[in-house]
């Protein structure tokens, strides 16, 4: 069976094998292999970096675990409590709600940022004013998150906030500020995050779009694709790895950056915006329950790492990239 198949294809493969496409197997080898040069000094060269890394990341990591297993107090010495800190988290409504709010917040931010970011990038790509506009769009990113929070705090202000007045005029809001209402406060935060970080997505996507091979776009056009279809079948699969990096960065940031939340709502009104990192901040640095805070931080860290690894795994898997390309096609069909 194998032989007939091979014979059938002989005409083409014969040519290619002649040209060394197929590796040839030898049934003999050299008498002895030459010794490869040894490079011992590379350990020395890497040592400073490894030591610094250990000091700033590995040591705090283990210290975090240590704290999470103790009742930590400034006045008295630490007391071993075993997994008590963790056990108590399960009964803590604020902790479980914190997770739900964090997932909601992160999902909203990511979806909006990716959608708006990609659309902006597509519009900007090849536009005459691309350079100027990119610089303008980048401005929010240059701002420190706390400053951004303060700026929006004034814009949202119920008495003199310009955006508040705008929202009110369109009829979206009543007298209360967007941040003061339990139903809208989360949106207030999402808008700030989207405002500040969509440019990052745009920038990364734009870099991806620059690398979409022109000939593939043209081939697809000749194959019969319009511009929208061209985007979904050629551009999107090509920028897919870039988008994954953007998602990875943004989701980890959402799990860490709470500067603007602390400035704008501090978790309120009520607990409407007390996403897990904010709650962690409260427990550790408002109530100084460092042990419990460390336990929360550790669970947060583990989830972040696991999610990150999953994303990286998808990123490395070429089969998933095809799946994304196909998904793009079906939405367009």
């Amino acid at each position: 069976m194998q032989k007939t198949l091979r014979a059938k294809r002989a005409s083409f493969s014969a040519i290619e094998e002649d040209h060394g496409y197929a590796a040839r197997r030898l049934d003999y080898g050299p008498g002895a292999l030459n010794e490869e040069p040894k490079r011992r000094y590379h350990i020395l060269l890497m040592a400073p970096a490894i030591l610094t890394l250990a000091a700033i990341t590995i040591y705090p990591f283990f210290w975090l675990i240590y704290m999470s297993l103790h009742k930590v107090s400034v006045a008295r010495s630490d007391r071993w409590v075993g997994l008590d800190n963790y056990a108590r988290l399960f009964g803590d409504v604020k902790y479980t709600d914190g997770w739900l709010l964090l997932v909601k917040y992160s999902a909203l931010c990511l979806t909006l940022e990716i959608l708006i970011g990609v659309v902006l990038a597509v519009i900007l790509n090849g536009s005459r004013f691309e350079k100027v506009l990119v610089t303008v769009f980048l401005m929010p990113m240059m701002m420190s998150p706390v400053v951004a929070g303060l700026v929006w705090y004034y814009l949202y202000n119920g008495t003199f906030g310009w955006y508040h007045w705008l929202f009110q005029s369109i009829g979206i809001l009543g007298e209360t500020s967007i941040l003061a209402d339990i139903d809208t406060a989360m949106w207030g935060l999402v808008i700030v995050d989207v405002w500040q970080w969509t440019p990052l997505i745009t920038l990364i996507t734009l870099a991806g779009l620059k690398r979409v091979p022109q000939d593939q776009l043209e081939a697809n056009m000749v194959d019969g694709a319009g511009s929208l279809r061209n985007f979904f079948t050629v551009s999107l699969p090509n920028i897919y790895p870039f988008l994954l990096i953007a998602i990875l960065l943004r989701f980890m940031d959402n799990f860490r950056f709470i500067d603007h939340i602390l400035v704008l709502t501090g978790g309120g009104p009520g607990n409407a915006t007390r996403i897990l990192p904010v709650y962690l901040f409260d427990v550790s640095f408002q109530f100084f329950k460092l042990g419990r805070g460390a336990a929360i931080a550790f669970t947060l860290l583990i989830v972040t790492i696991v999610l990150g690894l999953i994303l990286v795994r998808i990123f490395d898997d070429p089969k998933k990239q095809v799946a994304s390309g196909e998904a793009g096609e079906t939405t367009d069909d």
Binding site: D215, N220, V222, Q321
Partner: peptide, 17 residues
Amino acid sequence: KDRDIAMVFENYALYPH
């Protein structure tokens, strides 16, 4: 897409995904 043509490109322009 409306010209009813088919084209082979110099660099083949295959879709890698």
